[in-house]
């Protein structure tokens, strides 16, 4: 994996800084509202990581990620609310369902390439949106969705600690995974799929594994998010805007880098928060979009690449 001292230092600093945030609130340096914003950013970061594992390196663009997040969220919500399954069990079950369900439906789609894959994932999201409203509305809550779902934490600080620990664990895990030969193989896959197959590697297996990891993260984050919010609504979940937010977070942070999407998620969430006094409504997507488009057209590798380049120049290691 080729870990160096500065990797340990950077991760240590990141983890310490994130876990110490609530102390800033105690000291009066930061409002509780900011902590709540950071919770949102943590969940968005996990979704963006999940997207990044599948799409960031391989070039198989998923436009239907809310499909996976939705399975996780609906899974645990229905299990815990309608069947009285304890949350400790319903969340792992929901994650498992996300992985199995996602694999069963999307494995055939991994045979097709490029734009076709993007389209099929988009169609899956739309299908899921239609399905939850029609099939067993007594369980899914139909168009209205579900509310009164058990929440896991009380107060901003506890919610934050849970979200940030999950996010850091997911980020570290995926970052390490992408530093193995598996990560190299995924880069290679995105650059020349035939040559990967011509090097003796089963591309279907590589894609399926990337997909499983992606589904695991999406299911996990979706399940915990629903137990944080206490409710879920299909229109908000299976919305092209949420696909957009996830992809933009990953892209402007830096696709394929895992840490980039985390940066992107925090950047986007705080951008929105700072803009709130000036732009209270739907304008935010206009701003998101404009920022994303400009950044994407001029630096497709995102903030991560900009920071990396800056650091290298700083230390004089070209």
């Amino acid at each position: 994996m080729n870990l160096r001292w500065y990797h340990f230092a950077a991760w240590g600093a990141l983890i310490a800084a994130m876990l110490l945030m609530p102390r800033l609130v105690d000291l009066g340096l930061m409002g509780r509202g900011t902590l709540r914003t950071m919770i949102q950013a943590c969940y968005l970061a996990m979704f963006a990581i999940s997207w990044d594992v599948l799409s960031g390196r391989t070039g198989y663009i998923s436009f239907g990620h809310p499909f996976l997040i939705g399975i996780g969220a609906y899974g645990t919500a229905i299990l815990s609310k309608k069947f009285g399954v304890p949350v400790e069990l319903s969340i792992p079950l929901a994650v498992l369902i996300t992985m199995i369900g996602g694999l069963v439906v999307l494995l055939p789609a991994l045979r097709i390439k490029g734009s076709y894959f993007a389209l099929v994932t988009l169609a899956f999201m739309e299908l899921m949106y239609q399905l939850v409203q029609v099939i067993r509305p007594d369980l899914t809550g139909g168009t209205r969705g579900l509310s009164g779902i058990k929440t896991l934490t009380r107060g901003a600080e506890n919610g934050y600690m849970l979200a940030v620990s999950l996010m850091l664990a997911v980020a570290l895990g995926c970052w390490l995974l992408m530093r193995t030969r598996f990560g190299t193989a995924l880069w290679a896959l995105g650059q020349n799929e035939e040559a990967v197959s011509g090097s003796g590697l089963s591309t279907i297996r590589l894609k399926a594994m990337a997909f499983l990891v992606s589904a695991f993260v999406a299911g996990l984050a979706g399940a915990f998010l629903v137990h944080y919010n206490g409710s879920l609504a299909p229109r908000a979940m299976f919305d092209i805007n949420s696909v957009f937010t996830i992809i933009v977070a990953a892209l402007i942070g830096g696709a394929g880098t895992i840490l980039g999407p985390v940066l992107g998620a925090f950047f986007l969430t705080f951008l929105l928060e700072w803009l709130r006094p000036f732009l209270p409504g739907a304008e935010r997507f206009l701003v998101y979009g404009a920022v994303a488009l400009v950044l994407y057209m001029y630096q497709p590798k995102g903030i991560y690449a900009i920071i990396e380049g800056g650091l290298k120049r700083l230390w004089g290691r070209a």
Binding site: T180, R181, F182, T184, A185, A188, S199, G200, L201, S202
Partner: peptide, 15 residues
């Protein structure tokens, strides 16, 4: 990439 075994498990566990 050419040296990799066709097993994701080995790709991950071995350097």
């Amino acid at each position: 990439v050419g040296l990799m075994p066709d097993s994701v498990w080995q790709m991950v566990t071995r350097g």
